[in-house]
Design a protein around this nucleic acid. Structure first.
Lengths: 131, 131
DNA sequence: ACGATGTAGATGCATTTGCATATATGTAGG
DNA sequence: CCTACATATATGCAAATGCATCTACATCGT
């Protein structure tokens, strides 16, 4: 808990200092950029980013307003929407990444070598998965 | 990040289901209970819990209103306050702990043996401390 | 003793989150 | 078909958070 809070706060701090949006925006953009055809349904983004449904709904409002994503009606299921990244969304994802990558390196990479990182990743993986 | 979010959410969920206050309340109570004479200054709680100053200030408002802590003027330094746990605060800490401990066991303990936990703790410790 | 600067804590205001519920649509059972 | 229930997303409202700033007091240099 302590490690996560400290590191996350440090990274968010770096993003903000560089005039970038919060990390959650990046998470969403990244999922969209790497998804097939740059689009996902809200519930898919939810699952991948661990954002709460109502939070994501409003985050998408803000991102849409900022021109980074677009929502489109989905013919197959009248309840759903597509969320699509715009060109500006892709550009923003790339711009954030330059800052984010540096922040990760500074606050994480610099503190563990590859072997230690692998061990940590393995241990944490075990926590998130099965019993 | 994923591990922390999932586990924290699960634990908060358990607390809420048992009608307990959020984890931050416990963190503050715990620091007070184990502090000398059951009192600390706000900035000491801040350092230990990683709560932001203005957040702690208002959390203490709520906790004071709930009768779990009391604020007292500090003669040595006119700017500062003491924050003291009340008897009810101690009782609440203990009550939360019964639920919290079970939640930790369920969401963490059950997933790693002692050796793996020690390795994880060591790796994470390294992240929070020096380069 | 005095002004400049630093530190502890509180607070007004905007933003974000959480919670419950609403709306719309799909699916299954009789 | 029609009712009951499930799923996808949005939204009103309350609570928490972040941000900037305020007040009060301390400390330090002159």
């Amino acid at each position: 808990m302590r490690a996560q809070r400290l590191i996350l706060a440090a990274i968010e701090q770096d993003l903000k200092a560089a005039g970038m949006p919060p990390l959650a925006w990046y998470d969403v953009l990244w999922e969209l950029v790497r998804a097939h055809e740059g689009r996902l349904r809200p519930y898919e983004i939810e699952e991948r980013t661990l954002l709460a449904q109502h939070n994501l709904s409003r985050l998408l409002d803000r991102m849409e307003e900022a021109g980074l994503v677009r929502r489109e009606i989905l013919p197959e299921d009248g309840r759903g929407r597509w969320v699509l990244v715009t060109g500006e969304g892709r550009a923003t994802q790339a711009r954030i990444w330059t800052v984010y990558a540096a922040a990760i390196e500074r606050h994480l990479g610099a503190k563990v070598d590859d072997a230690a990182a692998a061990i940590l990743a393995d241990g944490l993986e075990r926590l998130t998965h099965g019993a």
